[in-house]
């Protein structure tokens, strides 16, 4: 008993101050929001697009675009680009409401997720129960979703809780590229959640199929299987990226406000 109390005192309080205080410092090598600077691109150079494992980088109508929904946040393009036209920033905020908002272009800001509509906010802002369905993928996004339940992030502070039964849930979190073998279970789980409900796609796999895109055994992500309300890209997304997306959706972060510093 005493050893337990002593250990409790030694381990101390470890919950982060965010969002009322600062977000924790991320490692200097953390790869957050990519920044494009097309003015650095030599004429006709396509090296970044050529090496991108998931073809997240493309040139259309003569301009460089990077689809966060496909990006693995690897370092291939950085190494291929001699000019530094692509770099990663430390910005962990990546979540959007619309799929097309995930497409980055040079000199254009990412349209971060806006809160839910008022009707849904009234229902979910203070209590949101989520059912997570893992549908393929590599289980890393699941791992970092679980991290949100630890004392560090303490998701319960926001009234967000993961529940076992879809019948008890207000929303569905989908991870993985949606394998053929999980398609039915995913649909059934979605159907079992009472309306109104929301859907959150976590990770590059769930958004586009990620590294498994094009494989006949997978569905290239959620696609139009179920309607998605929030996209959280990353392979896997950092826990701060997921947390930011969730509380942004629930209107806990005011765009441009004190807790939304860039």
């Amino acid at each position: 008993m005493f050893s337990m109390i002593r250990e409790r005192l030694r381990q101390g309080r470890r919950t982060i101050a965010y969002p009322s205080g600062d977000a924790p410092t991320l490692p200097d090598r953390f790869r957050g929001l990519p920044v494009l600077d097309e003015s650095k691109c030599p004429d006709g150079c396509r090296s970044c697009a050529e090496v991108c494992p998931t073809d997240a980088i493309a040139w259309d109508e003569g301009s460089l675009r990077l689809d966060l929904g496909r990006c693995l946040f690897c370092t291939e393009c950085l190494e291929a680009c001699p000019e530094g036209a692509i770099r990663y920033s430390q910005d962990y905020r990546l979540a959007t409401r619309k799929r097309e908002d995930l497409v980055l272009r040079s000199g254009r800001e990412l349209e971060l997720a806006r809160p839910l509509e008022d009707r849904l906010l009234r229902l979910f802002a203070r209590s949101l129960k989520l059912r997570v369905v893992s549908a393929g993928g590599d289980a890393s996004a699941e791992a970092d979703l679980n991290v949100l339940g630890t004392v560090v992030f303490d998701l319960g502070r926001f009234g967000i809780q993961v529940v076992a039964s879809p019948r008890h849930a207000d929303g569905l979190v989908i991870v993985g590229p949606v394998t053929e073998n999980m398609k039915l279970a995913l649909r059934e789980t979605y159907a079992a959640i009472p309306a109104p409900k929301i859907v959150i796609a976590v990770g590059t796999c769930a958004i586009s199929g990620g590294v498994f895109r094009g494989n006949p055994e997978v569905n290239d992500g959620v696609g139009d299987l179920v309607p998605v309300d929030l996209y959280i890209p990353g392979s896997p997304p950092h826990p701060m990226t997921i947390l930011d997306g969730l509380i942004r959706l629930l209107g806990r972060l005011v765009p441009g406000g004190a807790t939304d510093s860039s």
Partner: peptide, 11 residues
Amino acid sequence: LGYQHRGLERT
């Protein structure tokens, strides 16, 4: 099992 099968090895 098999629900996570995504045809990885074959690719």
